[in-house]
Design a protein around this nucleic acid. Sequence first.
DNA 1: TTGGCGATTGGCT
DNA 2: GCCAATCGCCAAT
Length: 202
Amino acid sequence: MSPVRRLRRFRRAELPVDTVELARFLIGKVVVRNLKFGRLIGRIVETEAYPIGDVAGHAFRGKTPRNGSLFLERGHAYVYFGYGSSFLLNVSSERPGVGGGVLLRAIEPLEGIERMVRWRGKTKPADIGRGPGRLTKAIKVDLHQDGSDLCAPGPLWLGATTQATGAIGKSVRIGLTRNAQRLLRFYERGNPHVSGPKRLRQ
DNA sequence: TTGGCGATTGGCT
DNA sequence: GCCAATCGCCAAT
C-alpha cells in the first residue's frame, strides 16, 4: 500500500474508444468514491472486457431497462445485481448507442481502508476488494450509481495517480460458459488483490 | 406465468 | 476445492 499522489480525474477524451483497450488501460488506474464521511480510493488491478457482439456480454441481446447504461458514451457506470447477492460495477466502453462494458473485478485499497473493512465485515486484508461483488461492497456501490458519469466530479469517478503499474497479464474471463475461450481478462501480475485461482494471477 | 440460469460469495471439507 | 444460497432476468410455455 502506498500514499495516493497527484490524484487527478480522467477527461472522457483520455479513455480509449474500444472496450478491450479500455479494459487494459484501466489496470493501475483508480476508482474514487466520495461519501459524506470522506473519500475511498481503490487501485484497479483486474478487469474484464465485454466487447461489441460478445455473447457473454449483457449488451448482446440489445438495450433493455436493465442494461441501458452499457449503451451510454464510454465512461459511465453500469451496475447490476447478480446471483441474488452481489452488485457488479462496469464502465461503459463504446460510442453512444453502442453496447459494451468493462467489468471491474478487483481493487487494491489505497485510501479509506478502515471504512471498507467495516462494510465488508470480517475478512483478510487482501480480500477487501478481491472479486467484483466484494469490490462494490467495499466502496459502497449499488444500483444508485447505475448510469452515473465516471468522468465528472461527483460521488464516483475514475482517475490516475503517479504510482507505476506493474506487468499486465492477460487470461480467459472468470465464471463464464458462453464465449469463455477469449483472452479478455487483464490484471496486474502477482498483485495479491487480484481474484481467481493462482494460475490466473501470475 | 414459469423454470432455468448466471460477469458470485462465504462457509465448510 | 466444493457447494448451497439467493433472486432478477428472459426465453419458452
